[in-house]
Amino acid sequence: MNIFRLTGDLSHLAAIIILLLKIWKTRSCAGISGKSQILFALVFTTRYLDLLTSFISFYNTIMKLIYIGCAYATVYLIYMKFKATYDGNHDSFRLEFLVVPVGGLACLVNHDFSFLEILWTFSIYLESVAILPQLFMISKTGEAETITTHYLFFLGLYRALYLFNWIWRFYFEGFFDMIAIVAGVVQTILYCDFFYLYVTKVLKGKKLSLPA
């Protein structure tokens, strides 16, 4: 464990909690892409099946259970409890355009053609594009609630911190995982446009609105 991975995990946890609290407190999922949340639930489900097969540490196990629990709770709040506030018209990204290519790539490019490894690879590739429906929805509505921008900031920051974690681990442990690194770079690049808007607008107290 190193400072980049720890702050990365805490940033990820903060994002997940911020979103859950936003929906729960405002009793509304306006502006939130339910499709991205479905993808995140799928990412955690396919990545954390090793909860059933191996124990790494209490931290590892507890964080995985929290991530999975919050992901499904968020999907439940969006599609069941606060379904009336779900903006399905603007959440129109075709998930099959992501899941099918990612599934194919996971079968072609992986470290080992075993069941758990393919699922892990699928979850890594899927996570790198899972935010696209959310970013697409914001581009369609042309704006985002400030609390939603904080959610996106911490979510984007987490994988950026993981990039530093991988540099650290390569230098000090000689460890690296090219699949996770390449997907992590792609994932972080997808946030760059948002990061620019977040820093230049939201941090200056303005609302995040895209030029219509």
Binding site: R5, D9, H12, D50, S54, I56, S57, N60, M63, K64, Y67, H111, D112, E117, W120, Y162, N165, E173, G174, F175, F176, D177, M178, I179, A180
Partner: peptide, 10 residues
């Protein structure tokens, strides 16, 4: 070290 499939990250 260098092994890529030690899955100790979240």
């Amino acid at each position: 070290p260098g092994k890529s499939n030690q899955k100790d990250e979240l």
